[in-house]
Amino acid sequence: MDNLLDSGYPPLAQVGRPAGDDIPLLRVRQLQKRYALRGARSWTGRQPTRSLEAVDGVDLDIQRGDVCCIVGESGCGKSTLARLIMGLTRPSHGEVHYDGKRIDHLGTAQRRPYRRRMQMIFQDPYASLNPRLSVRSMLEEPLRVYHRDWTRGRIREAVEALMADLGMSPEWGSRHAHEFSGGQRQRIAIARALILNPEFVVADEPVSSLDVSVQAQVLNLLAEIQTKRQLTFVMITHDLAVVEHFATRVAVMYRGTLCEISDPATLFSSPRHPYTHALLAAMPRIDDDRNCRPLPEAGVAASSMPGCAFSDRCPYATTRCRREAPALVELDNAADRWVACHGVEEKRL
């Protein structure tokens, strides 16, 4: 893999969106996923109907060629959002549009062409690979399903080409997942996501289970294939250093809602939402001797409060914040920066 690309990644302009194409590749509108919680029965024997909004009214546009990172703490709903986009979970409310067409309500058969175009890489390469298949059969299987007319030779060629492309030596093909280290497995998982030549890839914490040096290898590989194949990428992560390095667009998520969307440079230099502030301040850094600043700890995620989801931890919360949920509003002075905060809207913050 080391010899594939010696200099930096190609400049962003080359991977940017084609001119004149302003329909986002993925458009998510008012997406909501509600899970019913089974509470203890009350003495009347009636089941109380409590619910948890894992994703609560998310609006997000992802342009072609974007690398959109969704950051947030565990339990904020970022993985649920990824699953909703991929159609692995049905939304309770809201719409997902892909390439101009609504896809969230499609049945299995109608969904099929989109499954080829949209692929997913999962967090745990120990759990996401079938232990009983050799690497080659793992990679051949999707081709056999989606390209019924391909000959065995053509399928083998496609697999070998992709393996070479990802820096996997040919003898990997006959081996099984357990014979590989974490970083190598994640490379196999990436290969499996790419074998059908998708245009849109969702990666859920692809490097968080890996060691620093291996993480660098996998991130380099992801960036390289993203630019080379002009992929549109959604990466779910909690690691801000990875976001700063990798993303062209960042969405910060808190308890099921998006609180800030921005390009990474502005987000890291001048965060606007108090939660983004807190998140950046809490990041332990090695290039900064300031101590990381803690934030009041969250209570156990309660079912929906009426106001802003962050209001119980926010040092700037007012009565309005506790009563009324803020909408995601575009800032007037900066293009394409969105913040959901009453304080920012009222020009207090």
Binding site: S7, Y9, Q184, A216, N220, H245, D287
Partner: peptide, 24 residues
């Protein structure tokens, strides 16, 4: 040096990360 240099914080955004070659 390799461990420190592999950290994403120390590479400018969208530049290739410096990885330690080879496996453990």
């Amino acid at each position: 040096q390799g461990l420190v240099n592999a950290l994403p914080q120390l590479t400018p955004p969208r530049q290739r990360l410096r990885q330690i070659p080879g496996p453990l």
